Simulated assay, not measured.
Amino acid sequence: MEFYHFARGVVASIVKPLYRLDIRGTEHFPKDAGVLVCANHTHNFDPLALGVATPRPVNFMAKAELFAAPVLKGLLPKVNAFPVKRGLSDREAMRTALRLLKSGEVVGMFPEGTRSKDGKLGKGLAGAGFFALRGDADVVPCAIIGQYKPLRRVKVIFGQPLAMAPFRERKASAEEVTAAIMQEIQRILDENENSKG
């Protein structure tokens, strides 16, 4: 964990001034419960911005191919990343994410599964809803707004946690829960993206 905080500090010292990082809504972030943070995804730097903005250490799923790279395979676990095989039902990654959530940690997810090509929010995958229902954790929607141009503002805006109890009580599907999460991310985008700065 010491290395995580060191690495986060280094990244923050670069990202915050370079992209005038504007972080909002951290008061909504649960202080000690397990949290699933779900954000839109338009740029490769989104995990860096989300990791810097989130007030608690974040665990990210990262595509398994990255863990095959000589430098990254040693570095990624130290910054709380764990591998997921994309396009497959990766049971090990699912177990890891659920274990982290149930033990009170934070897991960051981009429900679209890949970067948006046109900058618009795409359809979320059922995995987000699955973890939201099974993880016994709070679900925090997040909107990342900006194009990562030097000295142009990038906003990271956390919304209020979504209540999962009603979905669990009526045995909602993972797809329905994902749709509700994406709707909330879209609402935050609509309310904030007209003033990119």
Results as ranks from 00 to 15, higher is better:
F131T: 00
G197E: 15
V79L: 08
A128H: 01
L88W: 14
R95P: 11
L21P: 04
R115K: 03
L48N: 03
G34V: 15
K171P: 02
D118G: 09
A172D: 10
D190S: 13
I188F: 00
I157V: 04
K102G: 12
M94C: 09
A62T: 10
G113D: 03
N80T: 13
E184G: 00
D136L: 03
A49M: 13
V106A: 09
D118Q: 04
Q186A: 14
R134I: 04
K117G: 15
K120V: 14
L162K: 04
A81F: 15
R91F: 07
E176G: 08
P83C: 04
L88C: 14
L98S: 01
A97R: 05
L66A: 05
F130W: 03
D90F: 13
V177T: 14
G9F: 04
F167P: 05
N59T: 05
A93Y: 06
L18V: 11
P30K: 06
Q147S: 15
V71W: 06
R24C: 12
I144Q: 01
F130T: 05
A68M: 08
P17L: 06
D118Y: 02
A128Y: 00
S173N: 13
F131P: 03
P55Q: 04
F110H: 04
M1D: 10
L21I: 04
A179Y: 09
N194W: 05
G122I: 11
L75E: 02
Q186G: 15
A128M: 06
A62H: 12
V84W: 02
P166Y: 01
E193V: 05
L48M: 09
L88T: 15
Y4A: 07
K85H: 08
G124C: 06
F6C: 10
M61C: 11
G108Q: 03
L72E: 01
A179L: 11
S195A: 13
Q183I: 06
E191W: 12
V11N: 00
A132F: 06
L76W: 13
N44T: 14
V11C: 01
R152A: 13
T54V: 15
M61D: 08
D22P: 06
F6D: 06
M1H: 15
K78E: 08
G124A: 05
C142M: 01
F60A: 00
A126S: 14
L189H: 03
K73A: 09
M61A: 11
I14D: 10
R134G: 03
